[in-house]
Amino acid sequence: MTRATSRQAALTEAADDALFEQMATGDLAPLGELFDRYHASVRHFLLRLQVDAGEVDDLVQETFLTASRAAGAFTPGAPGRPFLFGVAAQLVRRRRRGFARLRRMLESLGRHPSAPSTSPADRTEADQRTAALYAAIAKLSDRHREVLIMAELGEMSGVEVASALGLPPGTVWRRLSEARAELARRLKGMQS
């Protein structure tokens, strides 16, 4: 309980829940460490949620800030990443609700390293398939996409996704299934 002193050295090795526990008391010292651990993951997650590259850094920061404020809600013993993904997803939702939605998916498609922007003739068939896949993911509805990305990227079970997003598990399974079926449908359409 009282790990107050000599924590700087222990910080680097501390478990995620210890960091959150410390932040829940208002001590923000572990925030930097948490950021170092997970900022790349969170950023990856946000980019896959079709967050614009120009906004992603703001949202990463907001995610960690919000997480530090909500640290009291962290489940002891849990890993930090699902919690952060949950916070990030909520922020994205809020943002999308607030602003009139501008569809930037084609633009963002061009930013994916694995989606080459050269002429179709240059691409291998595999590249084309990958590009088509990204395009299809971009066209999913937000609610389908967030579930899919969280499950696949976060290696989270449906129950974990559900608790991170505040949804019933059954809803998560259904959306996950729908999202995949939708992708399969779109890819099939592109092939023929």
């Binding site: 925030l31 930097g32 950021f35 170092d36 900022h39 790349a40 950023r43 990856h44 980019l47 896959r48 850094d57 990463v60 920061q61 960690f64 800030l65 994916h112 390293p113 694995s114 398939r129 990958t130 896949l133 990204y134 993911i137 899919l148 990305i149 696949e152 990227l153 995949r180 992708l183």
Partner: peptide, 25 residues
């Protein structure tokens, strides 16, 4: 294939960008 596409790495932030973001946070 979907899993692979989702997990395909994005351009990572440079150490400098990381540092700036960390300090801003």
């Amino acid at each position: 294939a979907v899993r692979e596409a989702v997990r395909a790495p994005v351009d990572p932030p440079t150490p400098l960008a990381h540092q700036r973001a960390r300090n801003a946070l």
